[in-house]
């Protein structure tokens, strides 16, 4: 039985809308957490917070979004090498971001804003929740990378790659909000 629902183009839009609803739902977590930031601490920010490091990791995540976009365009073109190269750069940048947050920023923040203080609670909870999304995004991108290497995805059908990339951009959008609200807003 062939119907509209089985048409691959129609199905693609269905899946895209589904992913968007998922993103809408997921962003509510961050809306709740960021509102909590204002409810608990107003726009207070400790003096010791390393704003330059914050700018650095923001830049890394931004570049990774850029390369993720290039990867998506490349596979739509049918250029597998370009797709894999851009995807690999994205994954490496994502890993660097994650390592810097967990291994450099968090130990630093433990000194002036431990989780037992209000700002520390927010800082660790929000960056932690974001880092968790970075981690899941990375796992997805790594899976896509190996799938792509095995010859999956074509210019006509690369929903798997597209969804992973859109999710990665979502992680970036979240950071676009988290970065100013945690690092830049101040009295």
């Amino acid at each position: 039985m062939s119907t509209l629902a089985h048409d691959s183009k129609y199905q693609l839009v269905t899946r895209r809308l589904g992913l968007w609803l998922f993103i809408l739902s997921e962003s509510m977590i961050f809306i709740a957490l960021l509102f909590t930031r204002f409810l608990m601490q107003g726009v207070y920010r400790p003096e010791e917070l390393n704003q330059t490091l914050g700018l650095g990791i923001t830049t890394i995540l931004l570049i990774s979004s850029f390369t993720a976009n290039r990867a998506e365009v490349r596979i739509a073109q049918g250029d597998r090498t370009g797709f894999l190269r851009n995807l690999a750069i994205t994954i490496i940048l994502g890993l660097v971001f994650l390592v810097v947050v967990v291994a450099v920023e968090w130990p630093e923040a433990l000194h002036f804003a431990p989780p037992s203080t209000g700002y520390g609670t927010l800082f660790f909870a929000i960056t932690g929740m974001h880092a968790f999304h970075v981690l899941t995004g990375l796992i997805i991108l790594i899976i896509i990378f190996f799938q792509g290497k095995r010859g999956q995805y074509s210019p006509e059908d690369h929903w798997g790659a597209e969804s992973g990339v859109v999710y990665w951009h979502f992680v970036d959008v979240v950071w676009i909000f988290v970065y100013p609200i945690l690092y830049l807003f101040g009295p």
């Binding site: 968007w20 859109v166 951009h169």
Partner: peptide
Amino acid sequence: VVQYYMHL
């Protein structure tokens, strides 16, 4: 990002 990278 939402408009040009995520194609909403």
